[in-house]
Design a binder for these strands. Structure first.
Lengths: 349, 349
DNA sequence: AATTAGCACTCATCAATATAGAGTGCTAAC
DNA sequence: GTTAGCACTCTATATTGATGAGTGCTAATT
């Protein structure tokens, strides 16, 4: 038997152990593996291999004379090198699209639905992070005076992504002035990324001392405020109850409590998840890799959502380390694809 | 000893039992009550009174030879007729105002902070319902074409409450047309409640066949859409982990799971809570009165938040039935007062 | 050299049992 | 109307022993 065959067999057995453990939530013994294995090997042989897998750090024993349980490293190896990739069928994708389609063209509603449906499908906690208008390019900017010293600044990235902010200003501004300023901004700034807006205006202020100086200065003040806060920067999270119901947590109330405390921390979660949203597709974080307080016993998967080529947000699933990574990956990928499809459709309509 | 003295003593004992139970979470025996009672009565006498209180339905025994535990009815009586009212000191109120003040004039952010701070102070789950623009009166309406067949409709109730919706329309509309329509709407509809808007327009359509007919018709179509969905209609909920950590739930994982499932149901919760927000002030719902699936073992308190005299939202606290209603009422009332203060300040600034 | 049967050993789990003590209701005395 | 005293009930906790799943090791087998 060649070395690679050897390796292959170890992988297969690790896979079987993990899959059995995912279902049963209790340590897996050599007998069971022996039965499930295609090539018939006795439990004794399996035991020998299990010892090797334990030495490699993929498995561990809760105590002498219990079966084996995967370690973080075991799961990681399984995800990277053992499990095969599944995809949802076109039919399932269509069904999901129907489920998440909101009655209106509204990104927030879409994401809320997506996280809800994803939680239901996976029976885990599911999340979606709303894209910030900042990441997108300017389509239109409108200014509208409210009262004397307040101005409503509406930033339009595209039809579905709109941010409006009330900005307090020093000098009063009339309706006509606002309209003029709006026209100025729209001709000068359309097509820029919102993130470059301020830089661009600042550069102009330094360079030219032209007739627009006053306009530029006022715009800068207003846009600085409007872009500084983004209340829509939100994490939709649903289905925490599924996770707490898992034996890992329901048997250890303290852990459940810590998990929920961790999930209450919307901002921390959001930042961490944002980091993982990458164009490469589905990302997996396992156990201690999660690096979020209270979520050491959890794993999560993320996938990016895009409008066309531009990544504008993401979604994913969070559950106990003991989850079916194969199925979760398929579902997260499928859901992200559906959201991306819908957003892109909306955008080009 | 007169009848009212008699009644008074029963109340005092019920109060002691409830307060002890709130702290200890375990059935309260006659010995303990006897010790805590000011007028010294032996445990035997207390037992007799406890039997009466049990007959009245205020107490029950988990089993023979355990102490007593309050029933829903017992809590209700305690809240209505036994406990005294506490209020936060002006100093505490000021501290809270500082804590919840957001960096910007934004109702949503204010409510989010309020629910977070309230959860921290009460160590229970706390919630806040965002006011819908529908409940307020029209200050300004702006229409802004986006692309060919879409129009952005901005509804301004006051500086801090703004709702914007993208509406798809049949016939294209130019910038000028939109501006004209906007002017029409602002002159005709300002001061009306948003909820009356549609009715008012419909009446006009039937009555007059005047030169404005076309304008009215178009407005109606747009506003119908814009008002039909209210994505800001949201419930902020924080601190569920506190509740799950209470022995009522941490000792019974199934109950904890059901609680969390109940809390996941944002819409149902929101509707139920809205019903309870009354101008009279703090409302209390206890146990089965809650009438929300999965929350039979909980109680909640709500208080209205207003801008001036007009109630625009509310907030409250949710926890196990075994909570310090006295302290919760003070905190909920105080927090509502702070939010009301801030909103009213903003509005009149 | 790899595999396997056989076996002694370990340890968690579960049910059965005993024990302690908290709290009751009742009765009779104050 | 109040209270001391007491028998009684029932939970909570600890103890014990039996069960069995699963292991590691050794020696036999292929």
């Amino acid at each position: 038997m060649s070395v690679t065959d050897f390796e292959q067999r170890r992988k297969e057995i690790l896979g079987l152990i993990i899959e059995a453990y995912v279902l049963s939530a209790s340590p897996v013994g050599s007998e069971l593996v022996s039965k499930k294995l295609r090539s018939s090997l006795s439990s004794a042989t399996i035991r020998n291999i299990m010892v090797e897998l334990e030495k490699s750090g993929y498995l561990e024993q809760p105590h002498t004379s219990a079966g084996r349980v995967p370690t973080d490293r075991g799961y990681r190896f399984y995800v990277d090198a053992v499990m095969d990739t599944a995809h949802l069928s076109p039919d399932e994708l269509r069904q999901i699209e129907v489920l998440i389609q909101p009655p209106e063209l509204d990104v927030e509603q879409l994401l809320q639905r997506a996280s809800g449906v994803l939680a239901g499908l996976t029976e885990q906690a599911a999340f979606a992070v709303s894209p910030t208008v900042k990441q997108r390019t300017v389509k239109q900017i409108e200014l509208m005076p409210l009262g004397v010293r307040k101005i409503l600044c509406v930033l339009v990235a595209n039809e579905e992504m709109i941010a409006s902010h009330v900005v307090e200003i020093e000098e009063p501004m009339s309706r006509d002035e606002a309209a003029a300023l709006g026209r100025f901004l729209n001709t000068e700034l359309a097509g820029l990324a919102f993130s470059e807006l301020l830089n661009s205006l600042e550069r102009r202020m330094l360079a030219e001392s032209d007739s627009f100086y006053h306009l530029v200065k006022r715009s800068l003040g207003i846009l600085q405020h409007a872009l500084s806060s983004e209340p829509n920067d939100r994490l939709y999270l649903e289905g925490a109850s599924y996770v707490v119901a898992q034996p890992e947590f329901s048997r250890h109330p303290r852990k459940a409590h810590e998990l929920l405390k961790g999930l209450d921390n919307e901002q921390t979660l959001l930042e961490r998840i944002r980091q993982d949203i990458a164009p490469e597709g589905v990302q997996v974080r396992i156990g201690r890799e999660v690096q979020l307080p209270g979520l050491e016993e959890c794993s999560y998967l993320t996938a990016p959502c895009a409008i066309g080529e531009e990544i504008v947000g993401g979604l994913g699933v969070l559950g106990p380390k003991r989850m079916s990574y194969r199925r979760m990956r398929a579902l997260v990928e499928g859901m992200a694809r559906c959201v991306t499809n819908l957003l892109t459709q909306w955008d080009t309509r």
